[in-house]
């Protein structure tokens, strides 16, 4: 088997995704007989001309959202060089935290004004809004999470490197992936495009808290109460997004007593995470009086910023970019 070539890159975001890859370093070392990491500016100091010399890359893990022209050019370049493009982390997959800036559009602040014309320093221009990777180029697979959990990232790397060639390794990956995905990678078939390397159900399925009947008497902000351990956070009046969010983290945040904010994106069956949450939360209001319900509703704050915390660019049906916005690609020189 010829060695596979991997590339890793981060656009606008933070280094957490790359650090997660670094953290599996110990296992990653075992990959070296089957794959080489040929392009990774953060750790290897790779340069763009080096990428051209390398020739085509097999799998590219792209993290970070598209916020500047430089991000867009990087995405286009890596796409044209790679066989599989993987959107790694919430920013690349859904726009992530950076896309929060687009809830209330307007002119971007703290941006030097005189940049646009005659810019001798060639600082990349900002895009009109924050895009997820799939808005700019075709994406083959997604590894969601902020940052992705080590297990799924490692499973994704193994699946795409070995493609069924090493059954022993595949058993780790397969045990962590949804059945359809697991079957295709163990039998050496390329997983269907658009597959998400995470669970299928909602976070509630793996959250260890006990869920009883949901009746909402009042809404609390996280600083206002100390939730009982072991009981569903939503039932205690905290806005927890677990029921609209894709499973895979194993209920990391709820285990610590912090409510889920949906970094894995919406669960498979959900149309729009905000709509799902509105439906779920308000159906538990313990009242039939319009005025009482209205009063209860007034205590909620910042629904949009909570429900679409990580997913505004791709999963908020009202805020996804339209075809015109994603166009105007600059030349890729």
């Amino acid at each position: 088997m010829p060695k596979k070539k991997l590339a890793v890159y981060t656009a606008t975001g933070c280094a957490a995704c790359e650090n997660t890859i670094l953290d599996i370093h110990y296992d990653l070392g075992s990959l070296t007989r089957s794959a080489d990491i040929v392009f990774w500016p953060y750790v290897l100091g790779s340069q763009w001309d080096g990428l051209n010399e390398q020739g085509p890359v097999d799998v590219c893990f792209f993290a970070g959202a598209i916020r500047t022209e430089a991000d867009r050019i990087a995405a286009v370049r890596l796409r044209s060089n790679s066989k599989f493009m993987v959107a790694c982390g919430a920013c690349a997959a859904f726009g992530g935290l950076p896309s929060l800036t687009d809830i209330h559009p307007g002119t971007p602040e703290n941006r030097p004004e005189h940049l646009d014309e005659g810019n001798e320093f060639l600082l990349p221009k900002l895009e009109s809004r924050v895009f997820a990777l799939e808005h700019i180029v075709d994406v083959d697979y997604f590894v969601p999470g902020c940052p992705p959990t080590r297990d799924f990232l490692w499973a994704a790397i193994q699946s795409l490197v070995y493609m069924g060639d090493s059954p022993a390794r595949m058993s780790f990956a397969a045990s962590r992936l949804p059945m359809a995905l697991a079957e295709s990678i163990t039998s050496g078939i390329v997983p269907p495009r658009g597959s998400v390397f995470a669970g299928e159900k909602a976070v509630c399925a793996s959250c260890s808290r006990i869920k009883e009947e949901k009746k909402f008497r009042g809404f609390y902000r996280p600083y206002q109460i100390d939730p009982d351990s072991g009981r569903c956070l939503l039932e205690q009046g905290l806005l927890c997004q677990g029921l609209a969010t894709r499973e895979g983290c194993g209920g990391l945040c709820t285990a610590v007593g912090a409510a889920c904010r949906g970094c894995f994106g919406k669960a498979e069956a959900v149309f729009d995470p905000g709509a799902k949450m509105v439906s779920a939360v308000s159906s538990t209001f313990d009242s039939t009086e319009a005025s009482e319900i209205e009063g209860l509703t007034k205590t909620f704050v910042d629904l949009a910023g909570t429900f679409y915390r990580y997913t505004l660019a791709t999963q908020c049906a009202l805020k996804t970019p339209n075809a015109e916005e994603t166009k105007h690609a600059p030349d890729n020189s």
């Binding site: 905000g274 949009a304 429900f307």
Partner: peptide, 12 residues
């Protein structure tokens, strides 16, 4: 549902 939905819509 209508109250919370209206609130979300107006935020968007």
């Amino acid at each position: 549902r209508s109250f919370l939905l209206r609130k979300l819509l107006s935020e968007l």
